[in-house]
């Protein structure tokens, strides 16, 4: 099932720092859940369309109007770090 390396990859994809010592137990736990989930393999789903929306509605469209924006102060209000009206993050390198 899931080995340490797989869990390490998933943790990176999900951007969660998992300590080296925790990888193994987490791999076992996730493997347990995945193993349990695999019972779905018993269900014959040939020709079944996957369910993508719960309601029998059609997607509604909105008119192309300006109804939002113009509140930069509120947008950055909760930011842990900000500068010159922008969000600040550790320097990114190309």
């Amino acid at each position: 099932m899931l080995d340490k390396q797989t869990v390490r990859n998933i943790a990176f994809l999900a951007r969660i720092d998992v300590k080296e010592d925790d990888l193994e137990p987490l791999a076992n736990q996730l493997s347990g859940i995945i193993g349990w989930v695999e019972q779905l393999g018993e269900v014959n789903t040939d020709g079944v369309a996957p369910m993508t929306s719960v309601t029998n509605q059609v997607l509604r469209w909105r008119a192309d109007e300006l109804t939002d924006g113009g509140r930069a102060d509120q947008v950055v209000l909760n930011a842990p770090d900000k500068l010159d009206g922008c969000f600040a993050v550790p320097k990114m390198v190309e």
Binding site: L2, T6, V7, I10, A11, L13, A14, I16, L26, Q29, L30, I33, I34, V37, L40, G41, V43, T45, V48, A49, P50, M51, T52, V54
Partner: peptide
């Protein structure tokens, strides 16, 4: 745990086996 689970079932190579399969079973449940 749930974020990791979800990341795994959507990741390349597993999407069909888990996520797509589950959406089909969901259709059958409905």
């Amino acid at each position: 745990r749930r974020i990791m689970m979800g990341t795994y079932v959507l990741s390349a190579g597993y999407y069909d086996a888990y996520y797509l399969k589950a959406q089909k079973v969901r259709a059958l449940i409905a």
